[in-house]
Design a protein around this nucleic acid. Structure first.
Lengths: 167, 167
DNA sequence: TGCAAATAGTTTCGTTTGAAACGATACTGG
DNA sequence: CCAGTATCGTTTCAAACGAAACTATTTGCA
């Protein structure tokens, strides 16, 4: 028979426990995973995550334009441009003008780039397996479905298009 | 009866499809969600995510030291220091020395800070609900468990302690 | 007590970031 | 054909980042 409390008709907590707040936990987990990946690719190949993503797309889909890379990596064009510049300097990527539309790039892998790509793939899967270790097949399938749903939902809530990199 | 292919005994793809790669998708989803949150808190209160996290912890656990904030927000001490400085300047947070140990801070909320905190809480839960819309109760529970397991796993793979912010 | 090591928090340093401005090229309607 | 607009990719800018250096204080131990 309490008299006080203006919002009794509300099942919502009036305090915020960060450690139980799903968006916060999602961010923390994602950043831990990204950090583990970043460290591996930095030590193994000297590649950052943006560079790694560009290599992953070119290994599969080359030739491709910078805009293609943007779509497939969820990175904005400035980030892609910078990553490509570094990869060209490293000798892994070729960049030339598209003769049919000179605004566009045509990106591809050099011989060295293809060699690196072939090493990148197994390390990626191995690291993925390490992260997912402790999850059974059903849980991995659940994670897959949840990420699909959350992606669709979050894409409508967030302004722009892509999905990478605030912080 | 093919003759070629050195790694036939391997069920692992030799190509990497980024859009099916769980760590990549986790990062994209997390960043979309973070961006949606960031935009809301920026427009509603002029708070960044680091500042928002500090407010969330202080609203619940004040008084607290900077190190306490570090633990509860998974942010490193430099980030916390900068966020607190901005919040003090904004008039939401008090920062004084701990008389028993002058190395430590004692942080708390001002009257304005408490007022903001009371507005922050419902917006946080409303946004969480928006993100989780489309998931039923069982799926939310699955997400909770999966994040717990992934967190434990990723924490052992990543070097340092915390879990925030490489991008 | 006194001195080395540890701890708390701030500041500095070089890098990376997203947004916006930009130059160059291509498309469009008149 | 030609102005106006849209698109592609790079560059610029200010802000934010992590790591490391740093100051101040406390603790451990001889």
């Amino acid at each position: 028979m309490t008299i006080n409390n203006t919002d009794d008709r509300n099942d919502e907590p009036s305090e915020l426990e960060l450690s139980r707040f799903l968006p916060y936990r999602l961010s923390v987990v994602s950043n831990l995973v990204s950090r583990a990946f970043a460290r591996r690719y930095e030590t193994a190949f000297g590649l950052s995550i943006p560079e790694w993503r560009v290599m992953a797309v070119l290994g599969r889909y080359a030739p491709a334009s910078s805009a293609d890379i943007c779509q497939r990596t969820a990175m904005d064009k400035a980030k892609v441009s910078r990553a490509v510049t570094r990869l060209v300097a490293a000798g892994y990527v070729t960049r030339k003008d598209n003769p049919i539309d000179q605004r566009q790039n045509v990106l591809g892998l050099t011989r060295d780039g293809r060699r690196i790509y072939r090493q990148i793939v197994p390390l990626a899967f191995a690291t993925e397996r390490e992260v997912l270790e402790g999850l059974n097949a059903e849980e991995v399938a659940q994670l897959d479905q949840l990420l699909t749903k959350l992606h669709a939902r979050a894409a409508t809530l967030a302004p722009g298009e892509g999905g990478d990199a605030p912080d």
